[in-house]
Design a binder for these strands. Structure first.
Length: 346
DNA sequence: AACTAAGCCAACCGCCACCTG
DNA sequence: CCAGGTGGCGGTTGGCTTAGT
């Protein structure tokens, strides 16, 4: 048996509100308040509407101090920063923008802001995402657009501020480009410990760069730490990332985050990042499966550094189902637990 | 001018967390 | 502790408007 409907669907009006209905609702609430019961309100107010519909109309349109019209640059920035940090938690984002409703912000993000962000990215790197790759891999990293840099900067500082242990960055490209960061996906520059493991620039921020992925114009490789990236840690170990021919690309930070790639062919490279790690403050790095969210303590080094699964990985990527999400599942029963999982590449 | 596609946004739907008896 | 009711939330839809052909 299904749940009982909140109102008699047959006897309620749906669709756009008329000025007369707006006036009735506004007058009633200004006089008597909501009474803490939206379900009973429409009848009392003489409206043939569902209580939920009344609530939505009041909150999103009729209540005082609702701000309509263009979003300011500052509002844009706040939305981007918060979206990068917490994802589509529109009500929380709306709470930071007086006068704006969650619905408004959600619509604005989905229809305009997301595109605006991508335009900014593309305009500072003309052709970067729109032209098919032809030629050799760029040897010089391209700087991120200032918009994106600013976003990462805000994002990083927000994470530090919130002392969040895990957060994520996914850089999607292609027709549905957008920058997405939230706490449910991949880990990336989040805590002070983690950031310290990357070479920081003069501003104390991590340098981020990206490359095109040759042969797949929708794929980009996100690189952090620069060409000479290195990291040091409390135990004195150091990993280095390198880009030369025949070299395995690998970087592991002291949070246990592993970033790894291979030379697929000459000048063809990609990076893989498997799962995410959470530092619980006890110096143990717990692996979190990005899909299930389950914690475990699997060892690093997934897929190994000898490229033994190279052909298989290449196959998986080349037969991608057209999705713009640059990921594949490595879930062969013959593989060890360490090797199985969801992989992302940039 | 007529038609189509794309953009936009108000409103709806269904799930879920919380509250209360 | 449990079950039902309600509010809140995020994803999605549908219809109106605008832009393009």
């Amino acid at each position: 048996m299904g749940r009982a409907p909140c109102c008699d669907k047959a006897n309620v009006k749906k669709g756009p509100w008329s000025p007369d209905e707006d006036a009735k609702l506004k007058e009633f609430i200004e006089k008597f308040g909501t009474g803490g019961n939206w379900i009973a309100l429409p009848q009392k107010a003489g409206l043939k509407r569902c209580g939920k519909s009344c609530r939505l109309r009041w909150l999103n349109y009729l209540r005082p101090n609702i701000k309509h019209g263009e979003f300011s640059d500052e509002e844009d920035r706040i939305i981007c920063t918060l979206y990068a940090s917490i994802g589509s938690r529109w009500s929380i984002i709306a709470a930071q923008l007086p006068g704006r409703t969650d619905n408004d912000i959600k619509n604005y993000w989905n229809t305009k802001l997301k595109k605006k962000l991508i335009m900014g990215l593309n305009s500072s790197n003309p052709g970067k995402f729109t032209q098919p790759f032809s030629g050799s891999l760029q040897t010089q990293p391209q700087p991120l657009s200032s918009d994106l840099s600013q976003l990462y900067r805000d994002y990083n500082s927000l994470c530090l501020q919130a002392a969040k242990s895990v957060s994520a960055v996914e850089l999607f490209s292609g027709p549905q480009n957008f920058l997405h960061c939230n706490s449910d996906n991949l880990s990336f520059l989040s805590t002070s410990q983690c950031s310290n493991n990357y070479q920081q620039n003069q501003e104390g921020l991590v340098d981020l760069q990206y490359y095109e992925y040759p042969g797949k114009d929708n794929v980009n490789m996100l690189v952090f730490g620069g060409n000479e990236a290195s990291c040091s840690s409390s135990d004195g170990s150091c990993s280095q990332i390198s880009y030369g021919k025949e070299q395995v690309i690998k970087q592991e930070d002291q949070m246990g985050c592993l970033y790894q790639g291979f030379n697929v062919e000459e000048s063809q490279k990609f990076m893989l990042h498997h799962g995410k790690y959470v530092d619980h403050g006890d110096h143990h790095h717990h692996h979190v499966d990005p899909i299930s969210g389950f914690l475990d303590q699997r060892a690093n080094g997934v897929l190994g550094n000898n490229s033994q699964y190279l052909e298989e990985v290449k196959q998986l990527i080349s037969t991608g189902n057209g999705s713009n999400v640059n990921s594949f599942v490595f879930n062969d029963e013959n593989k060890t637990d360490h090797e199985r999982g969801m992989y992302y590449y940039y």
